[in-house]
Amino acid sequence: MSGHLQITDLTVDFGGFTAVKDLGLTINKGELRCLIGPNGAGKTTTLDLICGKTKPTRGSIKYDGKELASLEEYKIARAGVGRKFQIPSVFKQLTVYENLEVANCKNTGVFANLFRPGHSSHRDGLEKLAEFVGLADQLDLPAAYLSHGQTQWLEIALLLARDSELILLDEPTAGMTAQETHKTAEICNRLKGKHTIVVVEHDMGFVREICDVISVMHQGQLLAEGTADEISADPQVREVYLGSMGIGDA
């Protein structure tokens, strides 16, 4: 059986350094998969490969039966892949509402958008999205004034406004307080089932809160795959993490 997102033999070489090597992942529709691993394991690079930011040296990325590996970024996005970056990336000079308006676009052609007003008739739907991530009161605030956590949530809301079916989240809770992390977990749990989600995280508490299956990466390769308990019992995983973050205790 092949999954909604099917990665096989994915390899990328940065001038002699292989950041991701023969990686295989199968993620089913509506699944939330966590990708963990020590620093430099190649997690971010894997997401880069899926969303087209980096082109693979070889291997295939099939999403919904469509090969993504050779497509340009914007075409991958149009296929339904949404990416949240490790460094929160929103449009700082635009208001929260305008941010959502940019993301909310079925027809991304240049001329179609030239003859369409910047503030469309979707306001209700976008307001609901802002509410979903707790930004309903900040709709008309420039994104530059949002807190770090709010910026992260806004970026998630943007992916939803884009109607991305596959959502890639790179360290969504980095720099968040415990409370904010909990809220992010709630958001993830509510999206589960409706979207296929890949989350890269270091925070094991958060991972346990949201995840069914965890994939562990190490030096560009898949090291282990299983539930949180299976993973923390795995001797290989314990060895890799030894002294770094104590996965077993989380």
Binding site: K53, Y74, R83, F91, V102, A103, T108, N113, L114, G118
Partner: peptide
């Protein structure tokens, strides 16, 4: 004031982000 104008302002702020929403930034 058009949607394209809004996208252009978004491009000014963060070009890559716009690209990963599926816009062909170059044509804008």
């Amino acid at each position: 004031k058009s949607k394209a104008g809004l996208v252009l302002q978004a491009v000014r702020d963060h070009e890559d982000r716009v690209r990963f929403f599926g816009y062909d930034v170059a044509s804008f």
